[in-house]
Every structure is written in C-alpha cells, then in structure tokens.
C-alpha cells in the first residue's frame, strides 16, 4: 500500500474476488427461481397439433444423398402452443427452443433424435409460442435410405442461456406421435426423374 499502483492493484484484486461471490449469488437465485414455486423442469406444457409430414427424394449431397442415390427427406407443417414465460428470470439472456423428434432405428437398438424447428427467444414478452401451420426449418433425413414408416415422438426442448452461470437444459414431452407415411408424393417423384 506504499504506492499509487500497488494501492490500485489491491483495490482491483478485492473487487474481482468479491465479484465471484456476486456471481455465485446470481447463479443460486436464478436456479431457485426455476424450481420454486413452479418447477419448470416438470410443469412445462407444450401441445403440438396437426403435423403434416411431406416426403421428398433428394439427390443432392447437401440433403444426405451419397453418390446421387435418392435420399428421403422429411419436412413438416405443424401447429405449436407453449408458454415459456416461467423460464425467464433476472439471469436469462435468451432461451433457445427446439422441436425435436425421437425415433428408433430399424433394429430398435439406438434412439435417434432429429431437430425440425428452432427459435431464439430474447424477451419474456415473446415467450408465449403460438404457431399455426408453421413450416419446419430443416429438411431431415435418416442415415438409412428411408424415413417413411418410422414412428416419431415429438418433444419441445429448451435451453436457457444465462448472463452468468451454466446453461440449463430441459424438455417438454408433447405426447404427439406420428408414423411417417410410406408414400412419396407424386410431385417429388417427378423431380427425381428430372
């Protein structure tokens, strides 16, 4: 404490040390806010309705095709309702929401998970999701040639990205199941010939 620079350094040191405690407090309060009074890990509600899958055969390698063999791609049209306002507290920077589907592989040994749609919510006011006839963002294919005949279980996943502290993940089971129909639409068959 005998010189200006040393006194300044001590002050900065103390401030950084104390900020660790402040961060611990922020992380603790934001986590408590998530589990009490409403435990967001269990009480989330999401409904998915009237999912219309559309299959198409693609021969581009950007759509999973290998050596120009046609690959079945799935796109969806869906309705989604969910209220995610509980996920927002003073430590929430943004919430990443994504609609995924789970399905078993042909031997029922592996559970696959594919993402059809996602969104970033930055404000609490925008956290009530109400989508009608929304289109999936991504064209999805399986490692095998076919996607048809697979039974998809839909889930809405969320991921809280905080200002400080760890990422928090959670999922809401929508209870919606869908078997992808076997037929490939006529229009996409024509595309394949071309």
């Amino acid at each position: 404490m005998f010189s200006l620079s040393q006194r300044f350094q001590v002050l900065i040191n103390q401030a950084v040390t104390f900020s660790v405690f402040i961060i611990a407090f922020i992380v603790a309060t934001s986590y408590i806010d998530l589990i009490y009074p409403n435990n967001v890990f269990n009480t989330g509600v999401a409904t998915v309705n009237s999912i219309k899958p559309s299959l198409s055969l693609r021969t581009s390698r950007y759509f999973g095709s290998i050596n120009s063999k046609p690959k079945e791609n799935v796109r969806l049209e869906f309705d989604l309702d969910s209220d995610l306002t509980n996920l927002f507290n003073w430590n929430t920077k943004q919430v990443f929401v994504y609609l995924t589907a789970e399905y078993n592989n042909t031997k029922n040994t592996v559970i696959n998970e594919v993402t059809f749609w996602d969104n970033i919510i930055t404000k609490q006011e925008d956290a009530v999701l109400h989508l009608e006839k929304a289109k999936s963002k991504y064209s999805v294919w399986d490692i095998s040639e076919q996607f048809s005949g697979k039974s998809l279980k839909f889930k809405l996943n969320w991921n809280i990205q905080p200002w400080v502290g760890p990422l928090t993940y959670g999922e809401i089971d929508t209870g919606y199941e869908l078997v992808v129909p076997k037929k490939v639409e006529e229009s996409s068959k024509k595309q394949r010939v071309n």
């Binding site: 104390f18 900020s19 430590n91």
Partner: peptide, 14 residues
C-alpha cells in the same frame, strides 16, 4: 458489492 447486488436483484437486471 452487497448494495449493487441488492439493487440489481430488486430491479431484476444484471
């Protein structure tokens, strides 16, 4: 530090 934390918590803003 304590004052800042309390103020931030009350206003709900980091």
């Amino acid at each position: 530090g304590i004052a800042a934390t309390v103020y931030g918590y009350m206003t709900g803003s980091i």
